[in-house]
Amino acid sequence: MNRLFILFTALILCSPTIKAVEPEEVLRDPKLEERARALSKGLRCLVCQNQSIDDSDANLARDLRILVREKLKSGDSDEEIIKYVVSRYGDFVLLKPPLNKSTFILWMGPVIIFIFGLIMVLFYMMRMRHAKKAIPLTEEEKNRLTSIRELR
């Protein structure tokens, strides 16, 4: 039983990491290929929506990877390629959403919450400081205090 366990663990550890990019897709120019990989890591596969096209085995992801490489080969800049894909599939295709009107709350949310928290903390601290200020005893209270002391 123990041996079997070790064997399985070893097999799992030795299994090659699965990569979606297939050998025939890879460009000869290593610089272009590097750009292609960087671009496809930022593009969402729309079939399996939480994977990038670089990771996905879906048919559409493969087509998009090839498209990115074709466009790189014809001399397009990274921005031109991203612009093309976004023009077809919308901002959703970008794994890192851009800052614009519809994503304003998404990007600014943490900042707004932080500022709100800061205001709450300041407010709390001010109240605490206010509470620490001792109010002097009135004449009446002083007299009562001396009388209690004298009783002892």
């Binding site: 729309l46 048919n59 559409l60 087509d63 998009l64 498209l67 077809r88 599939y89």
Partner: peptide, 13 residues
């Protein structure tokens, strides 16, 4: 055949 026209149309399903 290439699927490129479908990509031009923004097709994913």
């Amino acid at each position: 055949h290439s699927g490129l026209t479908s990509i031009d149309w923004g097709v994913y399903g």
